[in-house]
Computed example of a mutant assay.
Amino acid sequence: MNPFIRDIILEHKEEIMETWLVEIKKFRSDDLLQNISDTMYENTNREFVNKLTHTIQKDKDEFQDDLIQFAERLIQLGWPLNYITRGLQEFRKITVEALSDTGENYCKSIEFFQEIENWIDDIVNLLVNQYSGSWENTVFLQKMALKELSAPLIPVFDNISVMPLIGTIDTERAKLIMENLLDGVIEHRSQVVLIDITGVPVVDTMVAHHIIQASEAVRLVGAKCILVGIRPEIAQTIVNLGIDLGKFPTKSTLKKGIESALEMTQRQIVEIEE
């Protein structure tokens, strides 16, 4: 940055900061920051201005590291990206106005405005990229965790496991169900697997096809499959679509399915008399 602009910004830093603190409070309610205390809000804003003014005193790599660390802290605290973008636009406007009022001829030149534009644009790009990268990583980790939890095979008795399915089943998720199902059958040495579709809102031809494929795969590895959670509306849909589920047992509830699974493994639930 031009040394003259740097010096005059630092000279009027407090004036710019105080004006900016007043202006930025006007859209605090729009930034979902109401739950942050007034003290933290003001201290963070003051720190933000200090970071911005420090960028003109340091080399590029050093000031980038400072801003990245600051942005990471804002992300962890839940400050929205809108705070960054709107705040910087307001800071640019206030800085230009404050320096233009100093009477310095250079502060009214095109070169001056371009210098301020480039300064703030570089900071905006850096912080937006940091926010975007953090969110992409978070979304990726959440997606992986959801995949791991979306189709678990749960052992409930020796040689009996349950796979509860919840939500919509698409092709990608059907593949995951198949993998977890087969891996779980081998790992838990399951003889009977209950696929519970109580939480599946819609069973159409594609969903039924995926379930049939899963049951056939279970049969090929030496286990039996029971489909449970057949609600009346699901049963009617299956009949209307002409879907053949006759190759493996179906039960209306998980309780009835477990009773059938126990019978298949030569066991039963017996009530103990007091």
Rank of each mutant, 00 (worst) to 15 (best):
M178C: 08
L127E: 13
D204P: 07
V193G: 02
V124R: 01
I160Q: 02
D196P: 05
F140K: 15
Y131H: 12
M178V: 03
L194K: 08
I186K: 11
N125R: 05
L153R: 08
L149N: 08
Q142N: 15
I169K: 01
V156P: 01
D196L: 09
L127D: 02
L165H: 11
L126Q: 01
S109D: 05
A145H: 11
E104Y: 06
V203Q: 07
W119I: 08
P152G: 01
I197C: 12
I123H: 09
I110L: 14
I123N: 10
E187N: 14
L176Q: 12
V156G: 02
E172F: 07
S150Y: 07
N125V: 02
L165G: 07
V200T: 13
H188M: 05
A174C: 11
F112Y: 07
R173N: 08
L182R: 02
E172G: 00
C107S: 01
E104S: 11
T198V: 10
E187M: 14
T198F: 09
I110N: 08
A145T: 12
P164A: 04
K143G: 15
E111W: 00
L126Y: 04
D122I: 02
G133M: 04
V202P: 06
M144P: 02
I177W: 10
Q142E: 15
F157P: 01
I195S: 10
A174N: 09
S190P: 06
A151L: 00
N180E: 12
L194I: 15
V203P: 03
L176V: 15
L194A: 03
Y131A: 07
S109A: 02
L194G: 07
I186L: 08
E117Q: 10
S150K: 05
N105V: 04
N137G: 11
V124L: 09
I110A: 09
I110T: 13
R173A: 08
V185N: 04
I195L: 15
E104N: 12
I160G: 03
I186T: 12
T198M: 13
D158Y: 09
D183A: 11
I195T: 12
I123S: 06
I166P: 00
V139Q: 15
W135Y: 14
Y131Q: 03
